[in-house]
Simulated assay, not measured.
Amino acid sequence: MARKKSTSLKMRILHRYLGFFLAGIMAVYAISGIVLIFRDSDTFKNTVVIEKTLDPNLSAPSLAKAVNNKRLKVTKEEGGVLYFSEGTYNSNTGAVVYSKKELPFILDKLTHFHKAKSGDPLYFLNIFFGLSLLFFVVSSFWMFIPSSPIYRKGMLFVAGGIVLALILLFV
């Protein structure tokens, strides 16, 4: 007669195999999370020079939209050439040359995956990953017998983690 597995054993097994299955995606989120911390600086970014032809006689707001730079400010205009901090735009010919800071290809892909929105084609994978992490949190409480000293010590670490999370949220 087969013995019925306890909830604790089932949780441990699910926790273990889901952990192995999600190891790669957890590494992606860890790396992209670290990269995103530096998104307000040029750390990890390369300068890319872009040369293209736009419609002639664009206004500053239209130019900002065309080069995808909301903060574009024209610093001076001389002989039909508009100068801005990242480059120049010849309003007579439509030629624009500007530089842009971009993450290397793989880091860019990682960070876009990390920042997925509901309009992205694979957003449901991010939801699955979030729910899986939530499962890890809950299932970890079934790893040890509640009356054991290791469980009680673990609860102190849980309390410390909650306090740290609250401090980080409100500081």
Results as ranks from 00 to 15, higher is better:
Leu131His: 06
Leu122Trp: 11
Tyr98Thr: 00
Asn90Asp: 15
Leu9Ile: 10
Thr43Ala: 04
Pro149Leu: 05
Arg71Lys: 15
Val137Phe: 13
Ser8Lys: 07
Lys73Glu: 03
Tyr98Lys: 01
Gly79Thr: 02
Thr53Asn: 14
Tyr83Val: 06
Ser59Pro: 13
Ile31Val: 15
Ile167Cys: 05
Ser6Glu: 01
Asn126Gln: 15
Arg12Pro: 04
Ile127Gln: 07
Ala23Gly: 13
Pro121Met: 03
Leu82Met: 15
His112Cys: 03
Asn57Gln: 11
Trp142Asp: 06
Met143Tyr: 07
Asn46Trp: 08
Tyr98Pro: 01
Thr7Arg: 09
Val96Ser: 00
Lys153Met: 12
Val138Met: 04
Ser139Gln: 06
Gly130Thr: 04
Ile31Tyr: 05
Gly79Phe: 01
Ile106Gln: 02
Leu133Phe: 04
Leu36His: 11
Lys100Met: 04
Ala66Gly: 02
Gly161Ser: 14
Gly160Ser: 06
Lys10Cys: 04
Glu77Lys: 05
His15Trp: 13
Val138Gly: 01
Arg39Ala: 13
Thr7Trp: 09
Lys115Ile: 00
Ile150Val: 15
Asn69Tyr: 12
Tyr151Ser: 05
Phe129Gln: 11
Pro149Gln: 11
Ser85Ala: 15
Asp42His: 12
Ser99Ile: 07
Val67Ser: 02
Val81Gly: 02
Leu166Val: 15
Arg3Gln: 10
Val158Leu: 10
Ser132Leu: 03
Asp40Ile: 10
Phe20Asn: 06
Leu22Ile: 10
Leu63Glu: 02
Pro104Gly: 03
Tyr123Cys: 02
Met1Ser: 13
Thr43Ile: 15
Lys153Arg: 06
Leu107Ser: 07
Arg3Cys: 11
Phe141Pro: 12
Ile31Ser: 09
Asn46His: 05
Lys70Val: 09
Glu86Ile: 07
Ala64Ile: 03
Val137Asn: 12
Leu133Tyr: 06
Lys5Met: 14
Phe170Ala: 04
Thr7Phe: 12
Ile167Pro: 03
Val158Ala: 13
Ile50Phe: 00
Thr88Phe: 05
Tyr89Cys: 02
Ser8Cys: 00
Phe44Arg: 11
Leu36Ser: 04
Leu54Lys: 03
Asn69Glu: 15
Phe170Cys: 00
Phe84His: 08
Thr93Ile: 10
Leu18Arg: 05
Phe170Ile: 05
Leu166Cys: 08
Phe170Tyr: 04
Ala27Gly: 13
Met26Lys: 02
Asn68Asp: 14
Leu122Lys: 11
Gly19Glu: 05
Lys65Pro: 07
Arg39Leu: 06
Gly87Trp: 08
Lys153Pro: 11
Trp142Tyr: 12
Leu125Asp: 03
